[in-house]
């Protein structure tokens, strides 16, 4: 890649930051060049962000309808899945899955709730609630 080929697409995913890439100048010497974004990379990133958002929206609906506990929504809202949440909290997968049931979730001990809250970086009180607005 030549220095003048380094993409400068001002991607929103970089939020105004710049990334360093190595490229060759006219004489073929390598040097570091800042890039403000690349449309190709941004497309893939935004696809992933959109996917997580869609999952959170679906989860919100499920919880709103009373089929799932708020934990299910917060998990998706934090861009996690069952496997990751189980790894982050150190709880077995089947236990986490069980806590998706509203009745089981309502009886959770403060200790377990705190573990989820810590993994998701929210307060335990927030965890038991569903935001009013669908994300």
């Amino acid at each position: 890649m030549r220095t003048d080929q380094v993409p400068q697409d001002k991607s929103t995913t970089y939020a105004g930051h710049k990334k360093l890439l190595y490229a060759q100048d006219e004489s073929g010497r390598y040097c570091g060049v800042q890039s403000s974004g690349w449309a190709v990379e941004a497309a893939a990133t935004l696809d992933a962000v959109a996917l997580y958002r869609e999952r959170a929206r679906q989860a919100w609906q499920e919880v709103h309808a009373g089929r799932k506990s708020p934990l299910y929504f917060h998990m998706h809202h934090c861009r996690m899945d069952l496997v990751l949440l189980s790894q982050l909290t150190g709880l077995w997968r089947w236990r986490v899955k069980r806590h998706f049931a509203p009745r089981v979730f309502a009886r959770l001990s403060p200790a377990i709730l705190a573990r989820y809250a810590q993994a998701m970086d929210v307060s335990p009180a927030q965890l038991t609630q569903l935001p009013e607005q669908r994300p």
Binding site: K19, V40, A44
Partner: peptide, 20 residues
């Protein structure tokens, strides 16, 4: 899309590593 993200996003950068 996942392959491209693994290749280009912060922290990975497949083509980037070839240039490094």
């Amino acid at each position: 899309g996942h392959i491209v993200r693994m290749q280009e996003e912060i922290g990975t950068g497949g083509a980037g590593f070839r240039f490094v």
